[in-house]
Amino acid sequence: MILHIREIVNQDLDECVRIIREGFLTVANEFGITVENCPSNGAFIKKERLEADKEKGNLMYGLFCDNSLIGFMQLEKADNESYYLEKLTVTPSHRHCGYGKTLLDLARKIVKELGGKWIGIGIVEENIRLKDWYTAYGFRHTGTKKFEHLPFTVGFMELNLE
């Protein structure tokens, strides 16, 4: 088994859509998130969204196992010191093997190399298991917000890189 991470190119986007949907669908099912009540959720992502994010300059990375994509993450620059980590996912069949941490380690490394001091995330606040996972990595909870268009509360967390 050979693992490697590389930057995503346009030819990878169809496969990225598949992986993001597969990874986010487990959470969507657990928390009653549907295309009707939350069409922007990763479980229902469309290629056009990734194309637009890439065009905006967002950085995208894929984790490959024997040349098959099994994980994904995206970084969006918020300002000179902060980046948002988005769409971090590992396929359900490859979870609990440390691959998510591998992607987080890469995010930390890249943001530091780019001069960033913070990584922010937004998660389903009710997803205690995920919140605990990010907390164990060093993220701290900074607040919550209920958006009218979302069927869950968004929890905000950040990782200080200094």
Rank of each mutant, 00 (worst) to 15 (best):
26 T>H: 07
124 V>I: 15
28 A>Q: 02
130 L>V: 15
38 C>G: 02
110 I>C: 04
32 G>C: 11
100 G>L: 10
31 F>Y: 15
151 P>W: 01
82 S>K: 13
106 L>T: 06
140 R>K: 14
83 Y>P: 03
93 S>G: 04
75 L>Y: 04
61 Y>F: 15
24 F>W: 09
80 N>R: 10
157 M>G: 03
45 I>F: 03
78 A>L: 14
38 C>L: 06
133 W>I: 13
120 G>Q: 10
35 V>M: 11
21 R>V: 03
123 I>D: 05
84 Y>Q: 11
161 L>F: 03
102 T>Y: 12
48 E>Y: 02
40 S>Q: 13
82 S>A: 14
9 V>Y: 08
109 K>S: 07
97 C>P: 00
136 A>K: 15
119 I>M: 02
100 G>C: 12
21 R>N: 07
131 K>V: 12
78 A>F: 06
132 D>E: 15
114 L>C: 09
139 F>W: 03
131 K>W: 04
43 A>M: 02
144 T>H: 04
102 T>D: 04
110 I>W: 07
29 N>G: 14
152 F>H: 10
134 Y>C: 05
78 A>P: 00
79 D>H: 08
100 G>R: 03
136 A>D: 12
66 D>N: 15
18 R>I: 09
109 K>G: 00
33 I>P: 01
54 K>R: 13
15 E>P: 00
141 H>A: 07
51 E>V: 11
133 W>E: 03
80 N>G: 11
33 I>V: 13
85 L>G: 02
87 K>C: 09
137 Y>K: 02
95 R>G: 05
157 M>L: 15
144 T>P: 00
43 A>L: 05
131 K>F: 09
62 G>S: 04
4 H>S: 12
132 D>A: 12
3 L>E: 10
89 T>H: 04
53 D>Q: 12
76 E>C: 07
153 T>M: 02
150 L>G: 09
61 Y>C: 04
40 S>D: 13
122 G>I: 05
34 T>A: 12
120 G>Y: 13
88 L>P: 01
136 A>C: 09
129 R>A: 14
3 L>T: 10
37 N>Y: 08
135 T>K: 14
124 V>W: 01
85 L>A: 01
148 E>M: 08
77 K>D: 00
71 G>E: 04
147 F>H: 14
9 V>M: 09
33 I>L: 07
162 E>F: 12
86 E>L: 14
104 L>V: 04
58 N>D: 13
45 I>T: 13
6 R>T: 11
160 N>P: 00
66 D>V: 10
10 N>P: 07
36 E>A: 15
70 I>E: 03
105 D>G: 03
63 L>P: 02
96 H>L: 13
48 E>I: 09
110 I>H: 06
26 T>P: 02
86 E>V: 01
115 G>T: 12
3 L>D: 01
65 C>G: 03
58 N>R: 13
60 M>T: 09
126 E>D: 14
42 G>E: 02
77 K>N: 04
42 G>T: 02
107 A>P: 06
90 V>W: 06
133 W>V: 13
64 F>M: 07
161 L>T: 07
73 M>N: 04
157 M>K: 01
76 E>S: 14
76 E>V: 08
112 K>A: 06
101 K>P: 06
33 I>A: 03
35 V>H: 08
115 G>C: 10
103 L>S: 01
3 L>F: 14
65 C>T: 00
148 E>Q: 13
116 G>S: 10
59 L>V: 07
3 L>Y: 14
132 D>M: 13
30 E>P: 08
137 Y>T: 01
